[in-house]
């Protein structure tokens, strides 16, 4: 490798334990599982980068972090990150995370999965966890279809999209995820695209620090299926499209941020409110009812 050999020749290696062939992300990844399965120009890897950066910024010890994923392309994240992680059955990432958080409230539990998994198959779990305000962070990479299984119509697919189960274009009304999350009680809701890496990282930091149910939607290109079927080019063309067609509007009303196939898209941090988490509410309630007989649940 040319850069490498030049480095060694000039003995620029600044510290003795500096190995240029190790990417800084290597400490965070299970390198024996690499290379990952994501297609060239897919946006999921970018979010993993942002997530690692966010964990670094929050300075959470990695042995207190748990990543839970479901099934799907984004569901592979749990298998690639070198923290305690679990790859659950389809749609059940949030219930698994809920149980883990309740059993050991000291853990930082992050659900990292796709739109098909969290919102469609696991939609009921999503709304109930948000309603209870379970203290977890949900990162949902939204590529508008079930990509791993060949591109079926999902509950987030914009109207008019051509996919393998909608060859003449979809006629279903899709979910507006930030609106859904806010209306069922999430305390932190943001949406970014794969291009907004720094905004994404900042949102992840804020979400990790936020007690309660925080939700980040990441709009990511799926060049192999979605973009190809819509004839939108590859992921790079899509990033250029995001660059030109996304408006950052922090605090926008989530009602107005629905996504149409070829219209401009609103991104930003939409919701940041305070509400007692599930465990706080439970402890407060029993303290009031049972008085000194009750000892606060701390796991």
């Amino acid at each position: 490798m040319s850069v490498l050999s030049e480095l060694q020749k000039a003995s620029l290696s600044p510290t003795p334990d500096f190995h240029p062939e190790n990417h800084p992300m290597d400490d965070f990844l299970r390198m024996d599982r690499m290379p990952h399965i994501w297609c060239s120009t897919c946006g999921i890897g970018v979010s993993v980068n942002c997530f690692a950066k966010a964990l670094e910024k929050c300075q959470i010890p990695l042995d207190q972090v748990v990543v839970v994923s479901g099934i799907g392309c984004t569901g592979r994240v749990a298998g690639y990150v070198k923290v305690d992680s679990f790859h659950t059955t389809h749609g059940r990432a949030i219930p698994f995370a809920t149980g883990m958080k309740l059993a050991n409230p000291k853990l930082k539990v992050i659900v990292f999965s796709g739109d098909g998994d969290i919102i469609a198959i696991g939609g009921n779990h999503f709304i109930n966890a948000a309603r209870r305000n379970i203290d977890i962070t949900v990162i949902c990479v939204n590529n508008f279809n079930y990509a791993m299984t060949g591109g079926q119509l999902a509950s987030t697919t914009p109207e008019g999209s051509v996919l393998s189960t909608s060859p003449f274009g979809s006629y279903e009304f899709p979910f507006n995820l930030p609106f859904l999350a806010e209306s069922v009680g999430a305390v932190y809701v943001a949406r970014w695209t794969s291009l907004h890496v720094y905004n994404q990282t900042v949102s992840m930091v804020e979400a990790l620090k936020k007690p309660g149910f925080s939700f980040i939607e990441v709009i990511a290109p799926c060049p192999t299926i979605f973009e190809r079927q819509q004839k939108m080019g590859d992921g790079l063309d899509r990033l250029r499209w995001y660059c030109e067609n996304s408006d950052i509007r922090n605090g926008a009303s989530t009602k107005d941020v629905d996504i149409r196939l070829r219209d401009r898209m609103v991104v930003g941090k939409f919701v940041d409110v305070e509400r007692p988490t599930y465990l706080e509410a439970m402890n407060a309630h029993y303290r009031e009812r049972l008085g000194s007989k009750y000892k606060d649940y701390e796991g």
Binding site: M25, N49, V197
Partner: peptide, 23 residues
Amino acid sequence: GFCRMICPEFAIYTYELKTGEKP
């Protein structure tokens, strides 16, 4: 460090030569 953040394959990074700190 933008190339490092946007690379989905963890294949590129930069560091500041002076201090030798990784980005």
